[in-house]
Design a binder for these strands. Structure first.
Length: 456
DNA sequence: TCTGGGGTCCTAGGACCC
DNA sequence: TCTGGGGTCCTAGGACCC
């Protein structure tokens, strides 16, 4: 974190019409044509429109039907996130050459704190040159154009990157923040959406300059404590937030809108299970577990509700998450038809966290309800060298059932000789103290009640 | 054939504990 | 028997962002 800056050394880099640009680069026949990327089904919406499509009035978040009506000649493409992530990775690497403090906001946006990097806290001209060099390097390496804003704060950098799109570069000299903001509509401020804008409009506030004249206490009364105080400062160009790399995920979720509303219980159960699998697979891939399972239901009339349950301990077990999700759905009135189902897991914990062990040990119901312990999920280069699917190991504590894993670690619940259950330990997957049981012994052992159940 | 899918943060009320 | 605050956790909903 840089204290007082001597120059506008916070960059906001925003890739122009990113998804559509990648598609045009990958398919030369699309160059110069209207391209719309988004859901292509009957209920799809536009994720990104190329500038050619925008000329016909196509916008992000517009329904696919409306986009087709406005630009029937456009190419309508389903998103290919893997392709976008690959290009994004190249761009983020370019940014990290400038500074270790890079905060991605999405695949196509990031803040960079130049003052924390080798260039230091440059003056206005220095920042302009650096930003120009970044834009050229991104274009040379990926073919994608970027708009860049530079300022003394994240707030102003983000506003600035939006002022001269596409392929823009706007540097905000220190001290000119409030003057730059004053004539802009309040909707240009981060955090002012339709609801807040409407409240402000009713209070007679349309521009940021007008907002800056409203006493903070009045804004707090209108918008609540957190939003009111933040907006009051932002309206005057004040923003102390630092550029934060590596923010940890707090939840993982998956949801689907169906082409038609679903009413059949069997279909709903099937879709729910698919969502559970998607969420749990991502949890495990990231080596995480969570305590709170949330069901989201959007009904035929677009009314949306969520129902959640917090478990005694964290889990990444498909059957546990599935059981909770089914119970929540069973308690929900879906007689009118379901437009969307979603499943989320929050209250995330890393497998390596010590408190996991106690919590897992206290939650026999999670795994005990099932006939077999969780299979090991360690994958990739650090996969342990025992055969895939083998989930019983031993060390000096005796036999242990692999309870879960990820990122080269496995969590094992051990059985003390003659007693059960034993300690739960997390070990590196290639820990030399850990040995797979001989196959014959596994077969003999596996038919016994799993340790998780024995602890119940 | 209106209105995606992935998230974050905040608020408010009730339970519960000290 | 009546009357407290403060803090934390949980649940539900809503606003907002890309």
């Amino acid at each position: 974190m840089v204290g007082v800056r001597s120059g506008p050394s916070v960059l906001h880099v925003d890739l122009d019409a990113f998804y559509a640009s990648v598609e045009q680069l990958d398919k030369p026949s699309l160059a110069g044509r209207a391209v719309v990327v988004g859901g292509t089904g009957p209920r799809g919406v536009v994720a990104t429109a190329s500038y050619e499509a925008r000329r016909h009035g196509v916008r992000s978040a517009m329904s696919g039907a409306e986009a087709r009506a406005r630009a029937p000649h456009a190419a309508f493409l389903a998103p290919r996130f893997a392709a976008y992530a690959a290009v994004s990775g190249v761009v983020m690497r370019v940014l990290r050459e400038l500074s270790p403090l890079v905060e991605p906001l999405s695949l196509d946006e990031a803040f960079v704190d130049l003052a924390a990097g080798p260039l230091g806290d440059l003056d206005e001209d220095g920042v302009r040159a650096a930003a120009h060099a970044v834009k050229e390097r991104v274009h040379a390496l990926t073919g994608v154009r970027a708009s860049v804003g530079a300022a003394g704060t994240k707030l102003l950098a983000k506003v600035a990157s939006d002022l001269d799109k596409p392929d823009g570069l706007v540097v905000v000299p220190l001290g000119t923040e409030a003057a730059l903001l004053a004539p802009l509509p309040v909707t240009r401020l981060w955090g002012v959406g339709p609801a807040t804008a409407e409240r402000l409009r009713r209070a007679g506030v349309h521009t940021v300059g007008e907002l800056a004249q409203v006493p903070e206490a009045e804004l707090v009364g209108l918008l609540g404590q957190a939003h009111g105080t933040a907006l009051s400062r932002h309206a005057r160009g004040l923003d102390e937030r630092s550029v934060e790399p590596e923010r940890e995920a707090k939840s993982v979720s998956a949801e689907d809108t169906f082409p038609r509303d679903l009413v059949e219980p069997a279909l709903l159960a099937h879709e729910l299970e698919r969502l559970v699998v998607r969420v749990v697979d991502r949890l495990r891939r990231d080596g995480q577990t969570g305590r709170t399972v949330t069901l989201k239901v959007r009904r035929h009339d677009f009314s949306t509700l969520t129902r959640s349950v917090t478990l005694p301990g964290p889990t990444d077990d498909r059957r546990t998450v599935g059981r909770v999700a089914r119970d929540l759905l069973a308690g929900t009135d879906v007689s009118g038809g379901v437009r969307l189902l979603g499943v989320g897991v929050s209250g995330l914990a890393d497998w390596a966290q010590a408190d996991l062990f106690d919590a897992a040990a206290e939650e026999p119901a999670a795994a005990g309800a099932d006939p077999a312990p969780a299979a090991p999920v360690a994958t990739g280069p650090e996969r342990p060298d025992w055969s895939p699917g083998l989930d019983v190991v031993h060390d000096e504590h005796g036999r242990g059932w692999v309870w879960g894993g990820g990122l080269g670690r496995v969590t094992v619940r051990f059985e003390h000789r003659g007693t059960a259950p034993g300690p739960v330990r997390t070990l590196r997957a290639d820990d030399p103290a850990l040995h797979p049981l001989p196959a014959a012994e596994v077969a003999a052992t596996a038919v016994r009640a799993p340790l998780a159940a024995a602890g119940a």
